[in-house]
Simulated scan of single mutants.
Amino acid sequence: MTQPTSSSRKADFRVYLGSTLFFIYILFSTPIVGVLILAAIPLSFELRYRIADIWINYLMFMLKLCCGLSCQVEGLENVPKDRAAVILSKHQSAWETIALRQFISPQTAVLKESLLRIPFGGWGLATLKPIAIDRSAQKEALKMLLEQGTARLKEGLFVLVFPEGTRVAPGDSKKFNAGGAMLAQKSGFPVIPLAHNAGEFWPRNSFLKYPGVIKVKIGPTIEVTGKTAKEINAAAEEWIGNAMTEISAESA
């Protein structure tokens, strides 16, 4: 028996109701937290980050309450406690753009600069030291990733990168882009490979969220000393691919 994909799951009344209630919560809470973060601009980055953390914690609580969706994390012991790292993560859903901050923190992420133009929520996000890039200008985007990513790592922030570049449906994969590996190689900070199956429950471009337990696997750090970016990328891609196979087998 194989794990059902989002397309084969039954969207019953509970799924529609829970997804609607969760959407309403996001719709009303995001502008509020955005305003609070903006009001804290004269104060410290740590305070703004804490405000965002509180919102994320409540968001994950509401996701479980409304949609019956939670997560199980394996490999937390692999997250360095004495230094930051580059997180190279599987990208299937919107879930990981939010939830990973609950167990790897403090963290920033590489994201589309257009997200920062969203009223209130995006404006607040812009104050949290994101690495916002224009994907249409690849050369400039890579330069920004390397410069700002190195600065964030030196400040003690984990940097989240989705090497596939876009959300990929469960069961599919895309060749890893080299940007995250180049950041690790040039900065000297290690890589944390991360796999999950969030797309099975919170599908890309879908309003519906299905009940279940998202499985997250965090791999051992990949040290970068003496390695090329290509070697780092290959090691992360291999580990994540194997971990995704394990997750599928465990969910069968």
Results as ranks from 00 to 15, higher is better:
L115Q: 12
T97V: 15
Q107N: 05
G171W: 00
L128P: 14
A132F: 01
Q107H: 00
L142C: 15
L146Q: 08
Q138K: 13
L145N: 07
G171F: 00
I98L: 08
F176E: 01
R101G: 09
K90Q: 11
W123N: 13
F176A: 01
M144N: 12
S89H: 07
E77R: 07
A85F: 05
V73F: 03
F162M: 11
F158G: 05
G122V: 06
H91I: 10
T97S: 14
L116V: 03
Q92S: 08
M62I: 12
E77K: 11
L65K: 06
V110P: 03
V161E: 01
A169Y: 04
K129V: 02
S105I: 00
I104Y: 04
L65Y: 00
S105D: 06
G124Q: 10
A137T: 13
L115H: 02
A99D: 03
G75V: 13
G171A: 03
K129R: 15
Q102H: 08
L115N: 06
W123F: 09
T166K: 13
E164Y: 05
L59W: 11
K81L: 14
M60Y: 13
L63T: 12
L125W: 01
H91K: 13
L88E: 06
R152H: 15
S70F: 12
A141Y: 09
E155D: 15
S89F: 02
L157T: 06
F158S: 01
G122K: 13
L160V: 07
H91D: 06
A84K: 04
L145E: 06
K129T: 12
A84I: 11
W123T: 07
V168C: 05
I133E: 07
L59C: 10
I104S: 03
E140T: 15
F162E: 03
